[in-house]
Amino acid sequence: MPLTEKLLILAMAAQVLLTLLVLILMGRERVPRVMSGEIAMADIAVDRAAYPLKARLLSNNFDNQFQLPVLFYAAVLLALWAGSVGWLELLLAWAFVILRYAHAAIHITTNRVEQRFVAYTAGLAVLGALWLWLILRLVVLVPGI
Rank of each mutant, 00 (worst) to 15 (best):
A74E: 02
Q115H: 10
E89W: 00
A105S: 11
L71R: 05
M35I: 13
F72Y: 15
A82V: 06
Q115W: 11
F96I: 13
W81V: 04
L99S: 09
N60P: 00
Q67K: 12
A93V: 06
A104G: 02
L99A: 13
F66D: 12
L91M: 13
W81I: 03
A75T: 05
V46E: 13
P69M: 15
Q115F: 08
K54H: 14
G86F: 00
R116L: 13
Y73I: 06
V34D: 01
D47T: 02
A40M: 11
L88N: 06
F62R: 03
G123S: 05
Q67N: 14
D47Y: 01
R56M: 12
K54C: 06
V97L: 08
A93M: 12
S59G: 15
D43K: 13
A95T: 15
R116D: 09
K54E: 15
M35D: 11
V76M: 03
L53A: 13
H103R: 04
A42R: 09
N111M: 09
W87F: 03
F72R: 10
Q67A: 13
V113R: 10
A40C: 05
A119S: 14
I39D: 08
H103W: 03
A104P: 01
F117H: 04
R56F: 13
L88S: 07
A55G: 04
D43S: 14
V118T: 11
F62T: 02
Q65V: 01
V118E: 00
S59H: 11
A119C: 10
R48N: 14
P69I: 15
H107W: 04
Y73V: 05
L53I: 14
V76N: 06
L92E: 12
Q115L: 14
I106A: 02
A40P: 00
L71W: 14
A45D: 08
W94M: 04
A105E: 00
R56G: 05
T121V: 14
F96K: 08
A122N: 07
H103E: 12
A105C: 03
E89L: 00
N111D: 15
P52A: 09
S36W: 12
A95I: 09
A75H: 05
L91W: 08
I106T: 01
A79V: 00
I106K: 02
L58K: 10
L90G: 02
D43F: 04
L88V: 15
M41A: 09
P69W: 12
I44Q: 06
W94Y: 12
G86M: 02
W94K: 03
I98R: 03
S59A: 15
L90F: 08
